[in-house]
Design a protein around this nucleic acid. Structure first.
Lengths: 141, 141
DNA sequence: GCGAATAGTTAGTCAGGCTAAGTTAGTATG
DNA sequence: CATACTAACTTAGCCTGACTAACTATTCGC
């Protein structure tokens, strides 16, 4: 693939990114939590995390994450706790309700995307299957 | 591809969508206009459009587009005009400055994505190349 | 010509992002 | 050990971008 080809691919990808954002918005439309909240709950699935970690993982500043966690805490989906080793640190973990909500939303999202994928040809699904790891690498460098 | 495969693909796609949104955010970070403004300017490149068209094309309600266009107009990047055939309709078109801004931002975005794509292997770029049309179909049905 | 429909705008609310500044706790140094 | 610095969060204030409800102005149908 030549430099020109890469440039042309970048142009097409640039045009498609907005479309994918709209797809994501529809994926979450009408659900009880927002896309961002869903993402944060997902980060907590493996156990408690500290605020700084969450902010970094989601590419936002710490104050932004504070507000997010405040809302999730108000909604009863997460709980803050203290770190016994360092009193400055606050850890965040899923409540039972948060875990249930996460799973419900995940199933709804996957069902929606499955329906969308189902309207493609098998070849198109295979193409997405092959491309996903490459897309995952983009922007991580 | 079986139903189970489609389900598994939907799960992976679901996980990647958030990542792609973060990629898009980085693509526009530090640029003189926001992602949404860039998208609207892009819609105007082929000539004037009416408010309703713009709102539909971008998947937002009319009041949202009104605010967007207000800001772009304040910034001197677009101009509103009347439709001679129907006095209710307002058309929006690019100013010279808007067109220049659009092209500058487009180049910067493409340059950023080209760099990102450049760090992939040729096979990975080819995979994305093949998958883009399929991704474009998703959510349009 | 009058009622209904259409095109936009205005007003009010909320989520989600930022920076700057404040608070509290740990760390390092003389 | 006191003082200064750094680190981890939170608070406050601002902006964009989304929504619905309500308003204005125009067109269309009969």
């Amino acid at each position: 693939m030549t430099t020109d080809d890469t440039q042309a691919l970048a142009e097409r990808l640039s045009r498609e990114l907005r479309h994918l954002v709209m797809l994501l918005r529809r994926t979450t439309a009408g659900q009880p939590i927002t896309t961002q909240q869903y993402g944060v709950l997902g980060s907590l699935e493996g156990g408690g995390r500290r605020m700084t970690e969450l902010a970094e993982e989601h590419g936002v500043q710490l104050p932004t994450m504070t507000v997010q966690i405040n809302r999730l805490e108000d909604a009863g989906l997460v709980a803050r706790a203290a770190d016994p080793a360092d009193a400055r640190v606050r850890t965040v973990e899923l409540t039972e309700e948060g875990r249930a909500r996460l799973h419900a939303v995940r199933e709804a999202r996957i069902a929606y995307l499955s329906r969308q994928l189902g309207s493609l040809t098998p070849e198109e699904r295979a193409a997405i299957d092959v491309a996903l790891p490459a897309l995952a690498k983009l922007g991580r460098s």
